[in-house]
Amino acid sequence: MIDTMIERREALPEVLTPPPARRGMTRERRAQVRGLLFVSPWIVGLLAFVVFPIVYSVYISLTDYYGIGTPKFVGLKNFETLFSDPIALLAGLNTIGYAGAAVPLTLLVALLLAFAMNRKVREVAIYRTALYLPTLIPLFALAFVVIVLINPSTGPISSLLGAVGLGNRDLLSDPNLARWVIIAMAPLTAGNAAIIFLAGLNNIPGSLYEAARLDGANAIQQFMHVTLPLLSPAILFNLIVGISAGLEVFTQGYVMTGGGPNNATLYYLLFIYQNAFSYNRFGYASAAALVLFLVGLVLAAIVYQISKRFVNYDAAA
């Protein structure tokens, strides 16, 4: 995927850069300095916010460090503790469970919305606006709204559940229901993904459908052989964005449930946060963060492999 992101550019026409031998050296040197100068903020940022964190995390994860004083070297103890910590495992599973349910759900909703908006409906701009608006609500505010919506005595959703016989209950005090409430919030932000899908659909040339129809393809075959392959870059993009956001789910658990009940919404990032900043276990939290980092790298590699095999970048150009 990365290969396709970098476009090789042809060298500039000779005419525009007439190089006398001696000045050429200085020019090239100056160009070199200039280029580096322009990207230097990023290089500093790379050192400060990528290289340093990786090195420092590895170091701290091998120590007992309470955020004050000198870190005490303890070898791999933090990792041993982590791998036998049932709460860490639960936090990991909660996070995977969240991402595993929320991401496909959101993408499915987004796809449906995009297909619907791609039809020739005159007032599509109105729907697009309406469907996009919830993504503008900050997550912490959305969490507040959901708390109000599902309050057992005064929340409309609880009343609705009660009215249809599902029982009017305090959803956030049941572990599984609390998980589902948070998952169910995700599709509300499907507007972003839907707009990306819509742009992808718009980029599919009508002539391809024409050709498919001439070959006798029905609607489903057209979808499978034209729409889906040509939409694959957008699907991949939404999938990557969704998964990385899903693995970093935090705010909902922090605001709505505090990680409960019975740790059901203790997501991995919340687990790291608690250990680092409420229990001052910086060494342990760094070990946990490193594990997440490695998992993320493996996931990225898998996605990269998949994208090489299945994602079609060229046809839509």
Binding site: N151, P152, S153, T154, G167, N168, R169, D170, S173, D174
Partner: peptide, 14 residues
């Protein structure tokens, strides 16, 4: 009934 009690609390302390 734990859920019933939680609902009671949320209802009467809302």
């Amino acid at each position: 009934g734990y859920q019933d009690v939680q609902t009671f609390i949320a209802t009467y302390a809302s």
